[in-house]
Design a protein around this nucleic acid. Structure first.
Lengths: 350, 350
DNA sequence: TTGTAGGCGTTATCAA
DNA sequence: TTGATAACGCCTACAA
């Protein structure tokens, strides 16, 4: 098996506890320089790697942060994870990542799993309203940080961004281009971000005295397929199609644009589309996607920093951090076809 | 702190070892039904979660598989991870994922980190030739499975796919369309997959009596930016531009297509582009990308299964699994402009 | 069927 | 400055 501290101690002719001290950055000050070097040399020669599992058992800290994400496949999650990793790296900690697949039972299992492995804290980016009880319960056992999605009724530490503002930006952009028949391709309201995006979007329409051109059933999973299906439903239902659409994420927007092609329509000529997230390659889609940028990497960083803080101050008040969204204008939005909108920039009357 | 087995035992009025047996699926047969139920009930009431860290220390197994990937951001890695997770889930194991960022020092640290945390086995998808010594050394300490990328000179367990065949498919496709001036936008040869893709590509050209139209410096990281830079270099250098390009991954292909637009050229009208991987949204790029599909999810599954097998049979011979690639034809390839190629399908003479 | 005892590798506390 | 000891929580021979 692997080299243990005992073997290092023997080779250096010291007691295991001395070896332990010599190898500990903080305790090594209590050890004579000579023996410290002896131990270090022995450890080096034997290729000693401390057993973090044993250490975790003894110290009650595993140096591990659990992370519950939705789905590795969703591009913005990758950026969140990188942010988390960037911060944890600095202190030799490691993330322990699990997927919940937008499923409450799986999320609960993930939490228990991470607790069972004695993660020091858990970052959850995939929470939905239905998970509140499970998350709050777990929060009594170890620090929990919500990232990206929030639970507004709780007092949990949270790192999110202003989804309301994001929805507002999207709506205003379309209104300013002259659109008056705008639909929303929404995610379900049990996710805080979608609820807020929706609220902001509606507020933006209302400012201009508009209502959604038609309403479709929100979807549970924001996939390419569902984006396609929602847009198909919009086109099938309305007497005449809308001139613009706001999709709750970029992947759905891609699906929606697909559905337009299938119907012989073109984006942005016939229908403009705004996405959300600004995923990698959003600028390489056909057409390059106008979208609201979710500062994923930064959110991940902040979440990890917060988790670390909570470790050392378990009773500190749990902060709520919010970052601003940003509209990224590309080619998927244009003024509406002739005769279908108000003149650009003048759509705000009642 | 958390509920321990001791507390469960006390509440059920049994000895801790009895409680342990009652809760163990395999040992619970040695326990009377009555006490078994008593213990289960006590555990349930207290919300007992076994401490996997302690268990790992005792059993020498942590139920954890380390995974070293390149970069969360690269879309195909997401699929590999999902495959791994899908398999590990069945047995309550968990992946422990780290990034190496195409950096040997980081990869070595990642391996040591995972070993220190006593992962039961490690799956490496990010290996490069320069990492051979570190990986082989680590393989003496715990089972290692190479996935996606291989180390041909070693006897390590491997789950890859046939990159040579993939490169061959790409070249043949372009040749069959009538192209004769074809360039490669390659990754560096220190990664087995890129080396093989390159070899297959050249073999495909050779079949048709062709040579690469021009040669660019392989890149270390296969990013959008590097794809853009390589294509720019190609356009700058050649007397006349090639009519087709084979990029070693989809992300680079996207960058290359960008560079074409910047130069006032169009894909596929002026230059056809073949990518590699078939990432999510590859079919939504502009234009939808013809590419060689890397069976990422399946590779992940097989790697995880292999890792599990190796756990139980540490001395079993290390197999090498290979999956076939598949060419996915979309819109980014077309016959060359008039006067620039052989007639389609007739380019095989010498 | 249940209890006893010992130890997995490490570190904190106490004594020398 | 170093050594001895105990304990973190769990599991498993072995004994009863």
């Amino acid at each position: 098996m692997s080299v243990t501290l005992l073997e290092v101690a023997r080779r250096a002719n010291v007691h295991p506890s001395t070896a332990s001290r010599a190898l500990s950055p903080v305790m090594s000050r209590e050890v004579s320089e000579a023996t410290r070097l002896k131990v270090l040399e022995a450890a080096e020669e034997l290729g000693y790697r401390p057993n973090v599992v044993a250490r975790g058992l003894r110290k009650g800290r595993t140096g591990t942060i659990g992370v519950v994400i939705n789905d590795f496949q969703l591009p913005y999650n990758a950026a969140v994870l990188r942010g988390i990793e960037a911060v944890l790296d600095e202190t030799g900690m490691m993330p322990f990542v699990t997927e919940s697949h937008e499923d409450s039972a799986r999320l609960e299992r993930a939490l228990e799993h991470l607790h069972g492995r004695r993660a020091d804290a858990i970052i959850v980016t995939a929470v939905r309203a239905a998970d509140e009880a499970a998350v709050v319960k777990m929060a009594r056992l170890l620090p929990i940080v919500l990232a990206v999605r929030t639970l507004p009724n709780t007092r949990l530490a949270t790192v999110a961004h202003d989804d309301f503002e994001g929805g507002l930006l999207a709506a205003r952009h379309l209104v300013a281009l002259g659109h008056r028949d705008i639909v929303e391709l929404p995610g379900t309201g049990d996710v805080s971000s979608f609820r807020q995006r929706s609220a902001g979007f509606h507020a933006g329409l209302q400012e201009a005295g508009l209502e959604p051109a038609s309403v479709v059933q929100p979807v549970h999973r924001l996939t390419v397929e569902n984006g396609h299906a929602l847009m198909r439903a919009v086109l099938a239902r309305a007497d005449r199609p809308p001139t613009a659409a706001f999709a709750h994420n970029d992947v759905m927007a891609a699906g929606a644009i697909d559905a337009l092609s299938d119907a012989g329509l073109s984006c942005p000529r016939d229908i403009s589309v705004v996405g959300y997230d600004d995923i990698l390659l959003a600028d390489h889609l056909a057409p390059p996607l106008t979208t609201v940028r979710l500062p994923s990497f930064h959110l991940g960083q902040l979440a990890a920093q917060l988790a670390r803080t909570l470790l050392d101050q378990p009773d500190a008040p749990a902060p709520r951090v919010s970052l601003p969204p940003e509209l990224v204008v590309r080619a998927s939005c244009a003024p509406p076809p002739k005769g279908r909108g108000s003149s650009p920039g003048v759509g705000h009357g009642h």
